[in-house]
Amino acid sequence: MKAIGFKKSLLITEANSFIAFETEIPKPEGRDLLVRIQANSVNPVDYKIRQNAAKDKILETPKIIGWDAVGIIKAVGAEVSLFKTGDAVFYAGDLTRSGSNAEYQLVDERIVGHKPKNLSIAEAAAMPLTGLTAYEAIFDRIKYNPETDKGKSVLILAGAGGVGSIAIQLAKKLTDLTVIATASREESQKWCSDLGADFVVNHHNLKDELKEIGFTEIDFILDFVDLKQYWETAAELIKPQGHIVSITGSSEPLNLNILKNKSVTFSWELMYTRSMYHTADMQRQHDILNKLANLLDDGTLKTTRTTTFTGFTVENLKKAHALQESGKSIGKNVIVF
């Protein structure tokens, strides 16, 4: 099968930042599905791993990354019970295994969902990783409760990004929260408004703009952009007994003590935790993906796909990574094989 990977971490503009090569089609065992990939999408995790996985060495075998995919099941392991050969599926994969930048991929059925029937393969490929991340942030980390959280506020940092774009929709459609998103450019502000944000504020002047719309404190803050940059601001804005969730991490230790007096809860959200550690509730991702598929099929949610590259080629993968690295990407960028 054809695959695209890298042997060394290079700038995306360099000739060998990605290389195409041939490798054997893997065989499914246990609860694995063998999926013939039809489309995938690029997320920040893709370029971050490409930039760091082989900084000081040259890999003997090219590393295959990519953690969003849509495809058709071609074979199943002996213990598979949730799917059958021929099913159309979508998923965000597992950081510890070979990725979706290949014609075939093995993936555990417990982190796979049925593809939304009413979406094209490109539209569906945009949704798994960001959908799971946003859903887990709101319902598994914050643990939104309709009885006690009705009317509260949520601030979504980087509303026009991949995760922010689905978080706005989930918070607006499935909760009674007041949804505030950050965006600075005119096109990204419009994108957030069109997705349903009640308010869109410029992150360059965050506290003042929040004050202008009547918010000096926020119940829930979802960081989808840069925890270190917003840490002190988030600590100042969060209400006593509020909750901050971050997906971004920090290159430096952060002072957790500044949350103490307010008894603020802080949570990390990493969509890969369940698959990395084979947690007891690993199959919840299967359930979430199926729920997202139903919400997409009935029109409650809409795809966040904005850019489509046609053809599984080194050139298209490099273009998608360059766009993602630019920091100006809105929504999701998809490659159709």
Score class of each variant (00 low, 15 high):
109 E>R: 03
272 Y>M: 14
217 E>K: 15
90 F>G: 01
11 L>S: 15
127 M>L: 06
151 G>H: 08
99 G>Y: 04
238 I>W: 00
144 Y>S: 00
205 N>I: 08
39 A>F: 06
107 V>S: 02
169 Q>L: 05
4 I>Q: 07
329 S>N: 13
100 S>H: 08
296 L>T: 04
66 G>Y: 02
49 I>V: 15
12 I>E: 10
309 F>V: 06
294 N>Y: 13
36 R>C: 06
273 T>H: 13
29 E>M: 10
145 N>C: 04
257 N>E: 14
103 E>H: 11
273 T>W: 11
265 T>E: 08
273 T>L: 14
154 V>R: 01
13 T>P: 07
147 E>I: 14
127 M>K: 00
324 Q>D: 11
72 I>M: 02
89 V>L: 06
151 G>Q: 07
257 N>S: 15
116 P>S: 07
81 S>V: 14
146 P>T: 06
90 F>L: 08
132 L>W: 01
255 N>H: 11
291 K>I: 07
188 S>A: 10
150 K>Y: 12
269 E>R: 02
98 S>G: 12
240 P>D: 15
11 L>I: 10
281 D>R: 09
133 T>A: 02
337 F>D: 06
41 S>M: 09
183 A>C: 04
106 L>R: 03
287 D>E: 15
267 S>K: 10
146 P>L: 05
200 V>S: 03
265 T>G: 08
